[in-house]
Design a protein around this nucleic acid. Structure first.
Lengths: 219, 219
DNA sequence: CATGTCTATAGTGTTGAACAATCAATGCAC
DNA sequence: GTGCATTGATTGTTCAACACTATAGACATG
């Protein structure tokens, strides 16, 4: 799914790398990123690293504190609530006005199939990625580059939450089949039904995530 | 409307300054920003300036070209179309689910009044700002920080378009009163009507802007 | 023992200079 | 006029330095 991107600048390369480490949980929320330490570890200069930090801060993955440096963002309950509010907002509107034969629908189907393969292989991280890809495809139905890129950011933050919650089988397992049902309704020319199901899906997922979050937060 | 922000970092200060220059038209779309020249002009080091560039590039005001530097973004027709698609998406959804006594409604009223004062004073830039503030307040009705900050970015790009088009009286004059009408409908507990009017407003505004753009583009 | 002040130290904020890599223009040969 | 090498300017990146801020530990005081 990801080809070797051509002439990237070093800062973007490093940004991609840190992004990976953050959403894979290697860098845990709240931890401090020392400019000196990280620059040595990644073999880049402090200045370049600071450019990277600015990038990732705008993406919402990192958080600045004046004279104290950058930290990995720590999603709170209100973060989760906001993310799902945005998701309902955008995904449902996109779905409601969708044409069944829109290219985005093809991507939705591809994502569903990937999710099933990954489930059979018990690759739960893959399932998570496929789930996110499915919903990104939903947003594509709106045909708006800006909306899609905004949604990509939201997805990043959501992955941060997922990393916090662990137990991806429990998180994603119940939702795979619902994506297929939603897609089927859309393909059969019933976008209104699909939209309704999507909203229900998102509300349920939000409660689900919030519950899991509360459970780990109260320790 | 803007107090003296306290302990900002230098990069953010400079970013704010360049932002001003871009949306005020002092830096015209397409022009090249030389790192050396600008750093001397703004009395900051190249490194700091590059941090700023990364910031503003993420905001969509600047555009990178590998090994060629940064340029002020040049909105195209598809940019305008996308911006208005997003606006209809977000503003209309926000309005449709709005409660008439939401704090955002107060900000809408304040913006309308500001717009009228500015019109009497023939301060057309002020009118433009107030118009944008009005619609930002509409988005506030959705109670989502992420949605609001995304919309703020879109507004920035829109201001870039406005700067390109000149003639702000012609641009904003016809739309002031419609904002008031929309607000009144909302306050009177008819959000559905307000939404309909808002969508019509946005469609008309889009055609309006596209027309003006086509006129200056064909020279 | 508790509390407040002071100082040392580690980390960030910012700068200036340096060098390699790349793009754009110039000039030259054909 | 076209193709090609040289040159100049600009970006990409690094490094070393210093001012400034915050945090922790030592110390004095009650």
């Amino acid at each position: 799914m990801r080809g070797p991107e051509p002439a990237q600048t070093l800062a973007e390369t490093v940004a991609a790398r840190i992004r990976e480490q953050v959403i894979s949980g290697m860098l845990t929320p709240g931890s401090h990123l020392s400019e000196l330490t990280l620059s040595e570890e990644l073999q880049v200069s402090r200045n370049t690293l600071r450019e990277v930090f600015r990038l990732l801060t705008k993406e919402g993955l990192l958080r600045y504190e004046a004279n104290r440096g950058v930290f990995v963002s720590t999603p709170s309950m209100s973060t989760i609530i906001d993310i799902y509010r945005v998701r309902r907002f955008i995904e449902c509107s996109a779905m409601a006005q969708a044409h069944p034969r829109h290219p985005g629908a093809r991507n939705m189907r591809a994502a569903v199939e990937t999710a099933h393969h990954c489930r059979e292989a018990r690759d739960w991280l893959g399932v998570g990625s496929a789930d996110i890809a499915f919903h990104a495809a939903v947003v594509e139905l709106a045909d708006s580059p800006r909306l899609s890129s905004f949604y990509a950011q939201i997805s990043l933050e959501l992955r941060l939450v997922f990393g916090l919650l662990q137990d991806p089988e429990f998180l994603h397992g119940p939702f795979i089949d619902q994506n297929l049902t939603i897609l089927t309704e859309l393909e059969n020319g019933r976008p209104a039904v699909a939209t309704e199901m999507l909203e229900a899906y998102l509300l349920r997922a939000e409660r689900f995530i919030l519950g899991a979050y509360a459970r780990i937060a109260e320790r």
